[in-house]
């Protein structure tokens, strides 16, 4: 009961937040927190629950952004239709990618996803029809309109949409946690051979995790395009974006429901704060701190901030992270 009351109160606060936070920059920080929390939650489904560490999720983000933008520019369709189309494209591409790449494991898989990300970025940089390296501006619409997914007078609606997307990702993760598929995912993460020997179709489970993760990530891509109103391969398809998504989840706690939000709530204000303090200038102080934090977390507490919180609360729950890898005698097969 107490849990429901806390949850209800938290939701009320989140819904009322735009009334309290009125400065555009502060609202921007809130929007970014929920966008990154959502992306990290989507990544977490594949990497945290299913144990497949993708370093190429910008592919799906970029597909979401480019699909909706291209439909807006070339066919004058509403970005909402583009959002759905982007998710479909991302899911289809994720299945095509997953089919060969899921045969790889561990480092081999991670590097393969980097390679794929670089390939997709190179392709889009050189594809002039959708904007090429110059990128695409999305024409500004006046007045604000829900159909056109543009709210240039106030960021409030963007906030609610970001919040709703995060809620969706959270809901999907929560449902997965308790579903048969979710248990399959975790079984594969813990021990793929054991899972397979118990009759789990490993390939199909991985593809399912990939599809859900890619589809959700693509939604974030469309949102980003409509919020910033400019996309180019560097901003929506780069390796650094893929890594940023992972860092949020890793810092917060991989394989946990709330870890991504926690990570985003720490990293986004840190990033925006250092930018304001130092006035940008390409000093990368935020990344300097991120990098240091990630090393510290990996060495001291791979469970992330969630694990620290749980330990502080004396909670004996499982940390939600894969068991330490078994001592390996020979070489790992990819």
């Amino acid at each position: 009961m107490a849990k429901w009351i806390t949850g209800g109160l938290a939701l009320l606060v989140l819904l009322a937040l735009p009334a309290l936070v009125t400065r555009p920059h502060h609202r921007h920080v809130l929007i970014m927190i929920f966008l990154y929390a959502m992306l990290a939650t989507a990544w977490n489904i594949l990497a945290g629950y299913c144990g497949q560490i993708s370093l190429g999720h910008a592919i799906f983000f970029g597909l979401g952004a480019y699909t909706s933008t291209t439909l807006v520019k070339q066919a004058a369709l509403s970005p909402w239709i583009g959002m759905a189309a982007g998710a479909v494209v991302a899911v289809v591409v994720s299945q095509a990618i997953g089919f060969p790449v899921f045969r790889l494991r561990g480092h081999y898989f991670a590097i393969a996803t980097i390679a794929l990300g670089e390939i997709v970025q190179t392709l889009l940089i050189n594809w002039d029809w959708i904007g090429g390296a110059r990128g695409v501006f999305i024409p500004i619409r006046r007045p604000d309109s829900f159909v056109h997914f543009q709210f240039n007078e106030s960021k409030q609606n963007y906030y609610y949409i970001a919040l709703a997307m995060f809620a969706l990702a959270l809901l999907v993760t929560r449902l997965l946690e308790r579903s048969r598929a979710g248990y399959y995912f975790r079984a594969i993460r813990e021990d793929q051979e054991a899972a397979a020997s118990l009759g789990i179709n490993v390939a199909r489970s991985k593809q399912l995790a990939m599809a859900i993760s890619a589809g959700l990530t693509a939604l974030g891509g469309t949102f980003y395009a409509q919020y910033i109103l400019f996309i180019d391969p560097e901003s929506v398809l780069s390796l650094s974006l893929s890594i940023l998504i992972c860092l949020v989840a890793v810092l917060g706690g991989v394989g946990t429901l709330w870890g991504p939000l926690l990570g985003a709530a720490v990293l986004v204000p840190l990033s925006e704060g250092t930018r304001v303090l130092l006035g940008g200038g390409g000093k990368a102080l935020d990344l300097l701190i991120y990098g240091g934090l990630i090393v510290l977390i990996s060495v001291a507490q791979p469970g992330g901030l969630m694990a620290l919180l749980r330990r502080a609360r004396g909670d004996a729950h499982q940390l939600g992270l894969g068991a330490p890898s078994r001592p390996r005698l020979g070489h790992d097969k990819p």
């Binding site: 890793v250 240091g292 990630i294 090393v295 990996s298």
Partner: peptide, 15 residues
């Protein structure tokens, strides 16, 4: 865990 192994050096790279 594999994750810590990947992200420790990744974090170092970013740092």
């Amino acid at each position: 865990p594999m994750l810590a192994q990947i992200f420790a050096t990744f974090g170092l790279a970013i740092f």
